[in-house]
């Protein structure tokens, strides 16, 4: 596990008798854009929750930056440099856009002034500068997604886990989010992202893992994945005859 930034080793998550994730392993290298795809209910978000400490994995290990992080709390994981966004956006609704991002920036500074500077910088990089004084709850969904992105970027993460950051967005909005993601990678961060939009995934990812019913179905480059008959079957149905 020398140069892998994130290594997921035989992770399973059981909720009572229900197995949401079963024996999933993969590794993410530094500065990769790594896609995690699969039909609804495949266990993608659950896997994110296991990685970021929201629910500990039932079995298996999560190793980040050569540290075992299975039993760390979400805030400890964040301080190690791994931060996530949410499929259903979670703006701090009664705070302003600027204050939302400052909360993220306080991960790396104690000073109000510095936090504000970091926040402004990140708001600019996602193009939200004109909304700084607005309350976060009043933004439309596309801008809330960008706000989530600015907020996690303000923690200066080594790795971002983006949970359907393009979900519910139109073509132009998706494009601008993908541009931001590329520029974040240019600056040295690693990105794992869950996405349904196959076009978005294949256009941006270096490597993709496909989950289906909690099990890893395939792993490979975008070309390998789009040509994989198992993946096509899982997405289009049919295929699996018992």
């Amino acid at each position: 596990m020398i140069q892998h930034l994130l290594h997921i080793s035989h992770v399973s998550k059981h909720f009572g008798g229900n197995v949401a994730v079963s024996d999933v392993s993969f590794s993410v290298d530094e500065k990769q854009i790594f896609g995690l795809i699969g039909p609804n209910g495949a266990g993608k978000t659950t896997l994110f929750n296991c990685i970021t400490g929201f629910f500990p994995a039932t079995y298996g290990d999560v190793i980040f930056d050569n540290k075992k992080i299975n039993s760390l709390r979400p805030d400890e994981v964040c301080h190690l440099g791994m931060v996530r966004t949410w499929q259903r956006v979670k703006p701090l609704g009664n705070l302003t856009v600027l204050e939302n991002v400052m909360v993220g920036a306080f991960c790396i500074t104690n000073s109000i002034r510095e936090a504000e500077a970091i926040a402004q910088e990140n708001l600019q990089s996602v193009g939200l500068t004109e909304y700084v004084g607005k309350s976060a709850g009043s933004l439309p969904i596309g801008l809330k997604k960008k706000l989530e992105l600015a907020r996690v970027l303000a923690t200066h993460p080594k790795m971002l886990l983006l949970d359907e950051i393009c979900g519910g967005l139109n073509y132009t909005e998706t494009g601008s989010i993908l541009d931001i993601i590329r520029s974040v990678r240019e600056k040295g961060a690693t990105i794992v992202f869950i996405e349904h939009d196959m076009k978005a995934v294949t256009s941006i990812c270096d490597r993709i893992v496909v989950l289906n019913s909690g099990v890893k179905l395939a792993e490979g480059t975008p070309e390998e994945i789009t040509n994989n008959p198992d993946v096509i079957a899982a997405y289009l149905g049919g295929g699996h005859h018992a």
Binding site: C78, H79, W86
Partner: peptide
Amino acid sequence: DAAASLGIN
């Protein structure tokens, strides 16, 4: 949840 994910204990 958002607070915890942003590093708040």
